[in-house]
Design a binder for these strands. Sequence first.
DNA 1: ATGGTTGCTTAGCAA
Length: 259
Amino acid sequence: MRTTVMTWNVNSVRARLDRLLALLQRHQPDVLCLQELKVADADFPFGPVGELGYRAVVYGQKTYNGVAILSKEEAREVEVGLDDGVEDPQARLISARFPGLRVVSVYVPNGATVGSEKWAYKLEWLARLRSWLDRRRVPGEPLAVCGDFNVAPEERDVHDPRAWEETVLFHPQARAALADVLAFGLVDTYRLHHPEGGRYSWWDYRMLAFPKDDGLRIDHVFATPPLAARCTGAEIDRAERKGKLPSDHAPVIATFDLP
DNA sequence: ATGGTTGCTTAGCAA
């Protein structure tokens, strides 16, 4: 059974509603993970999304953060947050089970500037995500961990590695923290099908970054080995970044042939 | 070049 899993940082689901609905109609993904909703649960556009045949489970937050999973099939066994006893009001993780696989939508903290309090929170959050995986999941199950990780894995995923490694998106410590998450047993599905570099999922709104293609690949669909073995393709919908008032992120799609 | 743009909320923060 062909199953498509997509992830997109919408940068406000209300500001991007028309684009979200067009995206669902264009790709008709089985599962769509969203990040940066910037709305409380009650303000999520359940109605318009429902008219297109999609259900949604939402872990919202007013103004900042907020994650969701949209799907054609009903989401089961929904979990939200890292549930590790840490006092943390930021809505950054939601997980649900679907036929054939479990899906996680994550919004990893940006980290602002290297050395800041937000930077420390980013590195801690990635360590807490690894701990959550160790406690709640096993690498032998079909699992997709999708979202805006705010980290590019390798030099080929960055337009100008020497410049960007000074920043929170490609700093060696951020890359090491991401590598530790992947060491749980996760495969980069996009890389499986795209050994070439120069493919990005995020470009800053400023400095003409998109026209100059000064971007980074920081949005990912990671899969455990049994699921990655069934990944038949992966793409970035770069066209979604074009036109009037786009998100600063492009959607990433992975296709699986499930038993 | 500490710039530039967008969104939420209305002056300033976050990305």
